Simulated assay, not measured.
Amino acid sequence: MTTAPWAVLFDMDGVLIDNTEFHINAWIQFAQLRNFPLTRDLYIEHINGRVSADAMAYVLQRPIPADELAALTEEKESIYRELYQPHLQPAPGLMSFLDALKAQGVRTAVGTSAPASNVSFTLDGLNLRPYFDAVVDASMVRRGKPDPEIYLKAAERVGVEPARCIVFEDAFAGIEAGLRAGMHVVALATTHMHEELADTGAALIIDDFTALTVNQLRQLID
């Protein structure tokens, strides 16, 4: 077993927290206000895992200027935060898993398509920020998932080569981003069912973190 450093990179929504249905409901409410017939299936196909610029362009059916994008994004995210606030909690088994990673000196980062306001809402609301060596959000990249930029930047910030990084993702776009970055991917079946994730290229598919050990994870790269 090699002693070279390795890292675990986490998506946020649908991974650190099981909040997918709240995001879906928030997007549907937002779209209804603009007479766009968004459904759960359309959300999963066109929005889940993607940065706000791409998602908003799909719902409004036009490119969104930067100044307008900021206001629209915050409007949608305020709907989401109001819906999810009473339910905010870490994914099952997450805290113990993060403690185990920290105890073994594994480097960690968050790579999320979420805006900074939601990152603060989640990481600070649950006191998760101290567990991560780096956080990369949508404002820090030019190209959203499935482009690998967000995970490559996260790997660079924790000082670990991509081949020794393991990405935790729930969305097809995020899984593709991790694989395109040359990383190993663990898929969480929070947004998609196991059978839907079977052909994504993920090395492992799990329901949550409760039965996962650091040594089991290490085997993916050693």
Rank of each mutant, 00 (worst) to 15 (best):
residue 10 F to G: 08
residue 11 D to I: 11
residue 12 M to L: 15
residue 12 M to I: 12
residue 13 D to V: 10
residue 13 D to I: 08
residue 13 D to N: 15
residue 14 G to C: 04
residue 15 V to Y: 10
residue 15 V to D: 11
residue 16 L to C: 14
residue 16 L to T: 13
residue 17 I to A: 01
residue 19 N to P: 01
residue 19 N to E: 14
residue 21 E to G: 01
residue 21 E to K: 05
residue 22 F to P: 02
residue 23 H to P: 11
residue 24 I to F: 05
residue 24 I to Y: 02
residue 24 I to V: 14
residue 26 A to S: 15
residue 26 A to Y: 05
residue 28 I to P: 05
residue 28 I to K: 11
residue 28 I to H: 03
residue 29 Q to F: 03
residue 29 Q to A: 13
residue 30 F to E: 08
residue 32 Q to P: 01
residue 32 Q to L: 11
residue 33 L to K: 14
residue 35 N to F: 05
residue 35 N to G: 02
residue 36 F to R: 12
residue 36 F to T: 08
residue 37 P to W: 10
residue 39 T to D: 10
residue 39 T to W: 10
residue 40 R to Q: 13
residue 40 R to F: 10
residue 40 R to S: 09
residue 40 R to Y: 12
residue 41 D to I: 09
residue 41 D to L: 11
residue 42 L to G: 05
residue 42 L to A: 14
residue 42 L to V: 12
residue 43 Y to W: 05
residue 43 Y to G: 07
residue 45 E to S: 13
residue 45 E to D: 13
residue 47 I to A: 03
residue 47 I to P: 06
residue 47 I to T: 06
residue 47 I to E: 02
residue 48 N to G: 05
residue 48 N to T: 00
residue 49 G to Q: 02
residue 50 R to W: 00
residue 52 S to E: 06
residue 54 D to Q: 12
residue 54 D to G: 07
residue 54 D to C: 00
residue 55 A to S: 15
residue 56 M to W: 01
residue 56 M to Y: 01
residue 57 A to F: 00
residue 57 A to C: 03
residue 57 A to Q: 08
residue 58 Y to A: 04
residue 59 V to I: 14
residue 59 V to E: 02
residue 60 L to F: 05
residue 61 Q to M: 10
residue 62 R to Q: 13
residue 62 R to G: 09
residue 62 R to K: 15
residue 63 P to Y: 04
residue 64 I to M: 07
residue 64 I to Y: 02
residue 64 I to G: 00
residue 66 A to H: 06
residue 67 D to C: 02
residue 67 D to T: 11
residue 68 E to L: 10
residue 68 E to P: 00
residue 69 L to H: 08
residue 69 L to N: 02
residue 71 A to N: 10
residue 71 A to H: 08
residue 72 L to V: 06
residue 72 L to W: 06
residue 72 L to I: 09
residue 74 E to M: 14
residue 74 E to C: 10
residue 74 E to G: 05
residue 75 E to M: 08
residue 75 E to G: 03
residue 75 E to H: 12
residue 75 E to L: 12
residue 76 K to W: 08
residue 76 K to L: 09
residue 79 I to F: 10
residue 80 Y to A: 08
residue 80 Y to H: 07
residue 81 R to M: 15
residue 82 E to K: 14
residue 82 E to P: 03
residue 82 E to V: 06
residue 83 L to R: 12
residue 84 Y to N: 01
residue 84 Y to Q: 01
residue 84 Y to H: 04
residue 84 Y to L: 01
residue 85 Q to G: 01
residue 85 Q to S: 14
residue 86 P to L: 03
residue 86 P to Y: 07
residue 86 P to A: 02
residue 87 H to Q: 15
residue 87 H to A: 10
residue 87 H to G: 09
residue 89 Q to Y: 01
residue 89 Q to W: 06
residue 89 Q to N: 12
residue 91 A to L: 10
residue 91 A to I: 07
residue 92 P to H: 05
residue 92 P to S: 14
residue 93 G to Q: 02
residue 93 G to T: 07
residue 93 G to Y: 02
residue 95 M to P: 04
residue 96 S to D: 13
residue 98 L to G: 04
residue 98 L to P: 05
residue 99 D to M: 04
residue 100 A to K: 04
residue 101 L to Q: 03
residue 102 K to I: 04
residue 103 A to L: 03
residue 103 A to E: 13
residue 104 Q to N: 12
residue 104 Q to P: 10
residue 104 Q to T: 14
residue 104 Q to F: 07
residue 104 Q to K: 14
residue 105 G to C: 11
residue 106 V to Q: 06
residue 107 R to D: 03
residue 107 R to W: 12
residue 108 T to A: 12
residue 108 T to F: 08
residue 109 A to E: 05
residue 109 A to S: 14
residue 110 V to C: 08
